[in-house]
Amino acid sequence: QAIIKNELIRQAGLRYVPDRPEARRFASLDRPRIVSWLVEVVSALRLSDEALYAAVSLLDRFVAGTETFPPEHVLQLLALACISLASKHEEVAQYRADDWVRLAVDSANRPLYQREDLQRMEMLLLETVDWRIRVPNSLVFLRLYHNVLLHQEGVVPADAASM
């Protein structure tokens, strides 16, 4: 209840995909590219679905909260920062910054970005989303509904389900 109210207030502050040409370009071209790349990364590194959804949520909120849309050459850096932060938050085993940077290479197999670039992007991302990484996303609800279906009596209290 309080959580939902909080979320509504925050949502109202987000002008998600405002009606601008670059916004439409991002939504129709860049976002699908980034998301499918994230899906590939997550399955290749065997990361959890939670990390994937958190990364996409970070991506969306960053784009919604930023004035200037990320230019073409930083899109992949943005994607890297999203998945790196999401995995720092969600995963037990951690990849190092160098591992992430190695995922983005040009046609000659040279890395596109340096470790420092990733760090700066992470910071910019965090400050843009006000450090809010734990945001409920569709997967959270999916898991919750699934859990409810498994336990026909009704909503399983968090404590009972965490055994």
Partner: peptide
């Protein structure tokens, strides 16, 4: 070298809520 440590990230994200 690794930027924001995962422990800091978790602590901050949780505490702010």
């Amino acid at each position: 070298e690794e930027g924001v440590p995962s422990s800091a990230l978790r602590e901050i994200a949780l505490l702010l809520e």
